[in-house]
Nucleic acid binder design. Structure first.
Lengths: 233, 233
DNA sequence: ATAATAGTGTCTATGAGACAGTATAGC
DNA sequence: GCTATACTGTCTCATAGACACTATTAT
């Protein structure tokens, strides 16, 4: 019985790889809004298994980096951005989720505005591109491993958090119009909202600037920015 | 540059432990309500580091078990229950969270009713007992590793989910009175509730039985049970 | 002036919160 | 009848939802 072995002895044997360890990876769901559509960054795999298949970008967690560092590293490698919203979602530990070996994967989502985004193809993959989340889900596009489950999980999280947090603001620029922000909310929630009600609810989260949109047809729109709360120093 | 190594080559070397792997554990926050107080199962450590210190029960994840299996195994080993509410909380990956070696820990919470609970002391620990969550948090009791952070995280999750899910029902028996259920809510939320309002909100989640409490002083109370929803077969 | 988008005022239904009241048991 | 607990009715106020309205620009 392993109960008879003291914990420290167990750890020594464990550490000496007498007990195998699973590998640990971080997989990233990098979302952005482009052309009024929610998109996600996917890579096309260059290797077996799932060769040629679409997959989430991910990396093995190194011994000298935290999970969050690994997630940041992945974002930097794929879209070249460092100051992004990052949130841990769920850790996936099914035994055969990777056919090669036991890999436990911690999924993170990153929310970025399209403007600064630059896709970078590393040479471990065939391609890196943005894909419409709705297309992937509705057309039952196959993703490698359990990545489609990760995507569904992330979408649930986004829809929930849009309602009671400010994550929608991650998709807009520093200054934005309320009609634009409303559009973002509608894209994320997948439904249309009433203009007047939306503005009443959102107005307390933003503050006016003295600027307006210019050069566009019809009535210009006021530019707003996110209101800083007390606890944000 | 590791970029120059193909992914599959990288994996081979990685798997050959040329690249070290972190260890993966599961740590459990097992909650129950005893004497109108929220309690958590803690073990007293028998080994270095943190010898004699209180810690969450946890296990190393074996190669042939999922994270959830490992969590279930821990619950069975410590409190001898198998059919419990289990929820993954967060994965903790700071590099030095364990002074011995790199350990990534997936935290789960289990919610159990006190009645069936039987604490089981394995011989890897000095003791297993229930501790008041409020006492630990208010008296700044030290727990081993980052376990106090895990506890705070779990408490946030509980307080949130009590409001919009049925997790409070995990703490009561199959049949219960509404005053008892209200007390559970009050303990979890840390504040008193208005009887009439509580009943109006909760009444749609429960169904009456034809039984009442007996033998207690004053007016008897109707017994209710959780209403099964459509999607629960 | 017209079209198109930006932005506002207001009615209603719903639900949370507060507090009153009534009901039923043991003693 | 008294007391303690179980249980209910109703008022108020804040908020979400629906919809009609006004405002400002380019053409």
């Amino acid at each position: 019985m392993s109960d008879l072995i003291s914990e420290i002895e167990f750890l020594k044997t464990y550490d000496n790889s007498e007990y195998e360890k699973p590998s640990v990876t971080v997989d990233l769901l990098i979302f952005t809004i482009e052309n009024d559509d929610l998109k996600i960054v996917l890579v096309r795999r260059k290797e077996m298994p799932y060769l040629g298949c679409l997959a989430l970008p991910g990396v093995f967690v190194k011994m000298n980096e935290t999970l969050e560092s690994a997630a940041h590293r992945t974002v930097e490698e794929k879209v070249g951005m460092c100051d992004v919203y990052l949130e841990q979602l769920f850790t996936w530990g099914e035994i055969d989720r990777d056919p090669r070996m036991r890999i436990i994967s911690v999924s993170y989502m990153a929310l970025v505005s399209t403007e600064q985004l630059k896709l970078i193809k590393g040479n471990k993959v065939l391609d890196v591109s943005l894909y419409s989340v709705n297309s992937i889900l509705n057309e039952h596009e196959n993703l490698a491993f359990d990545h489609i489950e990760m995507l569904k999980y992330a979408m649930e999280r986004i829809k929930n958090k849009v309602e009671y947090t400010r994550i929608a603001f991650e998709f807009v620029e520093h200054e934005f119009t309320l009609p634009r922000l409303q559009k973002i909310y509608e894209i994320l929630l997948g439904k249309e909202l009433y203009k007047a009600n939306f503005r009443k609810k959102i107005i307390q989260l933003v503050e006016e600037t003295d600027k307006k949109t210019e050069g566009e047809a019809h009535r210009p729109s006021k530019l707003y920015k996110l209101r800083r709360t007390e606890d944000e120093a």
